[in-house]
């Protein structure tokens, strides 16, 4: 199955079996490996991407469910003209990054939150990242990093 989609800052053609997981198309077929596979069942959020403006788990979406013209944002797309986004910078500065495996998903959840809600409360921040498991931090530094970008 062929699809023409917007991936980060470019238009690409992807061709894969419709029952292939979207994450595998991204990681293995398109070599966009920033998106991580943590559990394969939508329980850890490491594979989070932003699909048409909404944060979703790419491990439980099949390539066949992607339409021509769909827009996908992965962690690679957060860098603009070689510059880190405010969230990326804040994550590094605040010690929110440890092993890094949850970070791409975490950043996309936070990006989706701030796109919709300019002034989230701490409770809303926690809600927005509660689908992203982190095993290294106590989440406190991640929440602080997001809060500083409001």
């Amino acid at each position: 199955m062929k699809r023409r989609i917007k991936l980060n800052n470019g238009i690409i053609n992807a061709d894969a079996d419709p029952i292939r997981r979207l994450i595998d198309v991204l990681r293995y077929d398109l070599q966009v490996t920033g998106t991580k596979d943590g559990c394969g069942e939508g329980a850890c959020g490491a594979c989070s991407i932003i699909l048409n403006g909404e944060c979703v788990n790419s491990c439980i979406i099949l390539f066949g469910q992607i339409e021509d013209g769909d827009e996908i944002l992965t962690v690679e797309g957060l860098l603009k003209d070689g510059k880190l986004s405010r969230l990326q910078e804040s994550f590094v500065k605040n010690g929110a990054v440890h092993c890094g495996a949850c970070i791409p998903g975490m950043l996309l959840s936070a990006t989706a939150l701030l796109n919709k809600n300019l002034k989230p409360t701490d409770e809303e921040i926690k809600d927005s990242i509660s689908g992203n498991l982190c095993r290294c931090t106590g989440y406190g530094k991640i929440i602080k990093a997001i809060r500083e970008c409001i």
């Binding site: 419709p18 997981r21 394969g40 069942e41 939508g42 491990c59 439980i60 099949l62 066949g64 469910q65």
Partner: peptide
């Protein structure tokens, strides 16, 4: 949405002849 079905497909538990999306 596939949030339940894909989990079962990925783990090989759901063995269907086909899918209607």
């Amino acid at each position: 949405g596939g949030t339940d079905a894909c989990t079962l497909i990925n783990s090989g538990i759901l063995k269907s002849k086909g899918l209607i999306n």
